[in-house]
């Protein structure tokens, strides 16, 4: 059996009386897209934060690349190769597209303490940044301020920044959110390619995208994973239908 890239073992997290994560077990295998779905308030964001290192679990273990990272902070996990995109676009507003991607690159390269070199004159770095921007379709928007980008473009920039880190795993929080049908379809095609570079843990509400992309799906409800399986298994799982898809969702 292949070694999982990311492994979540018996993770618990409570906020007072609220069980945000209850005995979560989840693996992300090389080359796969593992979708995490669940109704609003099911604990998806809490789980993502624990994986990214913003929140510490009350109990349990998070392993990344075979190493226990439960005690590591966000920065260390990012350095190890966890490429994250945010649910609400989180870019540097007063930077150009190129500067945003260059920032991600220098994070990965650990060159942030170079005080005297002109960062945008570094051919190698800017070429890499350009390439990452081109891959998400922002190749002709390099000199635009991030704050002037459209919503969809900002989502793409998020992905480009994650991409620039050359991560060992992607953690994508609703990359299609608010993108519209056309944009979502484009993003779906792109993510389909991306899985060959690194496995993706995908949190997404767009069911068309999830069902067409995911190798496996885990369903989160009230802080618990109630099912994990292939698209077909999830579609036909009665518990999932009751909790999430709704009894009458025959069309799915």
């Amino acid at each position: 059996m292949t070694e999982p890239v990311l492994e979540i073992r018996h993770v618990h997290k409570n906020f007072g009386a609220l069980r945000a994560s209850h005995d979560i077990n989840l693996t992300l295998l090389p080359g796969e897209i593992h979708a995490l779905i669940g109704p609003n308030g099911a604990g998806k964001s809490t789980l993502i934060k624990q994986i990214a290192g913003n929140l510490r679990p009350d109990a349990g273990e998070i392993r990344f690349l075979g190493q226990d990272v439960t005690e590591l902070d966000t920065v260390s996990r990012a350095r190890m190769g966890l490429g994250r995109s945010f649910q609400i676009s989180s870019v540097i507003p007063e930077f150009t597209v190129l500067q945003n991607v260059v920032l991600a690159l220098q994070g990965a390269q650990g060159t942030s303490y170079h005080f005297f070199r002109a960062v945008l004159k570094d051919r190698e770095t800017t070429a890499k940044a350009r390439e990452a921007a081109e891959r998400v379709g922002l190749g002709d928007r390099l000199a635009v301020w991030a704050q002037d980008l459209s919503h969809g473009e900002r989502r793409k920039l998020e992905i480009a920044m994650a991409l620039a880190l050359e991560p060992k795993a992607f953690l994508l929080d609703e990359p299609m959110a608010g993108m519209g049908t056309e944009g979502a379809a484009e993003m779906t095609r792109f993510l389909d390619q991306l899985r060959h570079e690194a496995p993706i843990l995908l949190v997404e509400h767009d069911m068309d995208a999830v069902f067409s992309l995911a190798d496996r799906i885990s369903v989160l409800d009230y802080g618990e994973i109630i099912a994990t399986g292939t698209v077909e298994e999830i579609r036909t799982n009665p518990e999932v239908r009751r909790a999430y898809l709704g009894e009458d969702e025959e069309a799915v």
Binding site: L103, Q106, G107, G110, S112, V119
Partner: peptide, 27 residues
């Protein structure tokens, strides 16, 4: 020189969006 160096980029980014800076592996 500092303003346009990698360090300056990280500094200005930290001003605008510190959480994002952490996510790319910079403290």
């Amino acid at each position: 020189r500092i303003a346009r160096s990698p360090f300056g980029l990280a500094l200005q980014a930290s001003r605008q969006n510190a959480e994002r800076v952490e996510t790319v592996g910079i403290t």
